[in-house]
Amino acid sequence: MKPVLSVEHLTIETIAAGQPLVQNISFQLAAGQITGLVGESGCGKTVTSLALLRLLDEKVIRQSGRILLDATDLMTLSDRTLRRVRGGQIAFIMQNPMSAFTPVFTIGHQLVETIRTHDRCSKREAKERAIEALLEVNLEQPDRILKAYPFELSGGMLQRVMIALAVCLRPHVLIADEPTTALDVYNQKLVLYYLEKVRATYDTAILLISHDLSVIAEMADYVLVMRDGEIVEQADVFDLFDRPQHPYTRRLLEQHGLQAGGMNA
């Protein structure tokens, strides 16, 4: 299968101390596939996802390696060109929906602005597309939501708005960094369900970052296990759960089994 995004020998380190945060990792994302990235807090999951879009402060952090989106190496692009890639071809869903929106503008303003930054269209057209996107994640009364400010919506609703925002530009790649960690279990399942809908409808390549192996079990085709900035194991999700190779993966699965016992098989 031809990868949409290919990461080759990505290394991330702090410039001041030369402290490595992520060391020589390589992986690929394929269209219509969900790749899970799992690991403990502080292992480098988020820093990796930010590096894919070159969102890390270049004065503080140095990254090397190649990030190929189709045939373009994102590492060689100018900031200006890169801005078109961010949000357009690669979209990002953050962990905390409460802090990902600007509190002083309405949801509608933020959706329309994002759409018009990437695609030339009238405000009215952009608004129609925003409404369409909100309906796709089953948010009722989209007119009302467009007029609402972020604080007027619950965390679960905001996270669905963020998915709507991320997919209304039909990105080839979607990075979801702990998209359900801030939600309760009921909303978690709903948000995961809509992510799956995005994948199935648009054939999007999704990088799903999570510390929760249940989220990975539900969603992923392929899994990367990260520890202290290195990928210690990568495998098909069934192989990983049935035949973990690395001792660290085995330890994670053991703890996962202990906690999950009881409620389902």
Partner: peptide, 18 residues
């Protein structure tokens, strides 16, 4: 039941979303 429905699979064999 509602709580049980919201619990995610522990192993990809039991998954329901995908």
């Amino acid at each position: 039941e509602a709580i049980r429905q919201a619990v995610l699979a522990t192993h990809p064999r039991y998954r329901t979303i995908r």
